[in-house]
Nucleic acid binder design. Structure first.
Length: 472
RNA sequence: GCCCCCAUCGUCUAGAGGCCAAGGACUCCGCCCUUUCAAGGCGGCAACAGGGAUUCGAAUUCCCUUGGGGGCACCA
């Protein structure tokens, strides 16, 4: 199946756009091709640098295309802004067969008529005045320099019907469509038209896009009929909204793909999340891989209802993917977020110890900081401090150069027991003395990384707070 | 205002007339494991939007209401 992804460069790729791209990729991956086409026809809406960022985001996700602005292909160019000649020739065909006509109404007049129409109900349309013009008169006014737009002459009293690949059968009456604009008075082709022309020229078999574009479909089917080409198949994906119900693009959260990557999400996690958003695996696997999804995907299992982006779920999936990483990949991933501080022996051990702790890779910064920087101004209640004295004694009796956390914790525990104290109290106090935190990396790891000497320095700097009641 | 689409736990969803006093996953809460923190294991809370109709029987079909989404441009 030949499919395409054709984003406008109005902003960064977000969760919604990435999902559309991914689903197209999934369809293409089962014997087909994905065409990447950039819809940059409107320069005022196109952000500079957006194309490079888009391609980078797509590549990072593992979405591949066989034809595109970077890759070229048999139907190049793949930027809409460079295809105006092709658009013009399609328009010429339509005007030759009188499927399109010049409309001399000003934008203002049309808007006024529309306001009237809305009061009465029904679709807006240029009233038939221009459509009824003879070709001689139309010609004459045009050569006299009167500005005009090209409109498509929508057939009257017809119903356009198609089997939408995700929504099922959809039918639209032609009177609800109105004669839409193909090219505006300054010669710019509209998106419905340009995108239809490109899909036809690039031999796209199935158009899968967001349901915001659903209203373009009956128009494009009509265009195909008028041009005498076989109408394409269409499928419209339900929208993704942000947790507060607002449209995704307007929400403030972390929905940009670039942002997710920079924060330390793994591409595999984002892909799994995206695939499972509005689609369910027929085999009900809990952690499907990309290839599982590629093999099992079909559009008929895509939900028709709009769905809500759930950042918490994405985080959970990411934490799971991080935990499953091989050692080297983990070190590489986490290491990218911090430089190794000098004077610390085995920092890889820290990465490994943090494995179960990190949700997104950038979390390593905070986690490592508790290990690297000494906590300041710590004061402990009397009971904890008493236990800490025993802990301290145990460490002093150990080899000062020891980094064997396992053995050290065992030794501390024995000493605490021998002193008639609850081992837990001492170990918790030790954790706080070392990092200032009540939770965090395993103590064994902490001692393995900082060693006896550093641990003793931190313990010695704590103070007793006699006024402070012991918590819990 | 008009047109179209959609509606199952808080979220993502399973569900094609009897297998459903509705199943899974995430979150949350307990318990277990444990030399601390996690992870892990086990268990729990939690939904068919409301009302009619069809049927022996409805989450599943139909209608209305409500709610949500999209569209109605010389925007991409």
């Amino acid at each position: 199946m030949r499919v395409r992804f054709s984003p406008a460069l109005t902003g960064a790729l977000d969760i919604g756009g990435a999902r559309t791209a991914l689903l197209n990729h999934l369809i293409a991956s089962r014997g087909g091709a994905l065409v990447l086409r950039i819809e940059d026809a409107d320069p005022t809406r196109t952000m500079s640098g957006a194309e490079d960022a888009l391609l980078a985001d797509l590549r990072w996700l593992g979405i591949t295309w066989s034809e595109g602005p970077d890759a070229g292909g048999p139907y190049a160019p793949y930027r809409q802004s460079e295809r105006t000649d092709a658009h013009a020739s399609h328009l010429a065909e339509l005007t030759a067969s009188h499927a399109a006509y010049r409309c001399f109404c000003t934008a203002k007049a049309v808007a006024a008529e529309r306001a009237e129409d809305e009061k009465a109900g029904g679709a807006s349309r240029c009233h038939d005045t221009c459509r009824a013009l003879s070709s001689e008169e139309s010609e004459a006014r045009a050569s006299a320099g009167e500005p005009y737009a090209w409109r498509f002459a929508v057939p009257v009293a017809e119903t356009v019907l198609w089997e939408d690949a995700v929504q099922g059968e959809i039918s639209v009456r032609s009177e609800d469509i109105g004669d839409f604009v193909l090219a505006d008075s300054d010669g710019t082709f509209t998106r419905v038209f340009a995108s239809w022309a490109d899909d036809v020229d690039m031999h796209i078999a199935l158009v899968v896009r967001g349901d915001g574009d659903i209203s373009m479909t009956p128009r494009q089917i009509l265009l195909s009929r008028a041009a005498g080409v076989e109408p394409l198949a269409y499928g419209h994906l339900p929208s993704v909204t942000s947790p507060d119900g607002a449209p995704l693009c307007e929400s403030v959260g972390h929905t940009g793909i670039t942002e997710l990557r920079d924060t330390g999400y793994l591409a595999s996690a984002v892909v799994e999340y995206l695939a499972l958003l509005g689609w369910s695996d027929p085999d009900d696997r809990e952690n499907p891989t990309l290839s599982d999804v590629e093999q099992a995907f079909s559009l008929d299992r895509v939900s028709k209802a709009p769905c809500v982006h759930d950042p918490e779920r994405l985080r959970t999936i990411n934490a799971r993917h991080l935990r499953a990483l091989p050692h080297d990949a983990l070190v590489r991933t986490l290491g990218a977020y911090m430089s190794r501080p000098p004077g610390w022996a085995d920092f890889d051990a820290l990465f490994e110890a943090a494995r179960d702790e990190v949700v997104v890779a950038s979390d390593i910064v905070t986690i490592a900081d508790f290990v690297v920087s000494r906590p300041s101004q710590l004061s402990l209640d009397a009971e904890a401090h008493a236990a800490l004295v025993v802990v301290s004694a145990a460490l002093e009796a150990a080899d000062p150069g020891s980094y064997n956390g396992e053995a050290l914790v065992g030794r501390i525990r024995r000493k605490l027991k021998a002193a008639g104290l609850q081992p837990n109290v001492g170990l918790e106090a030790l954790r706080i003395a070392l990092t200032g935190q009540e939770s965090g990396l395993p103590l064994t790891a902490l001692l393995s990384i900082m060693g006896v000497a550093e641990a003793l320095i931190r313990i010695d700097s704590t103070q007793v707070d006699t006024h402070r009641a012991r918590k819990r």
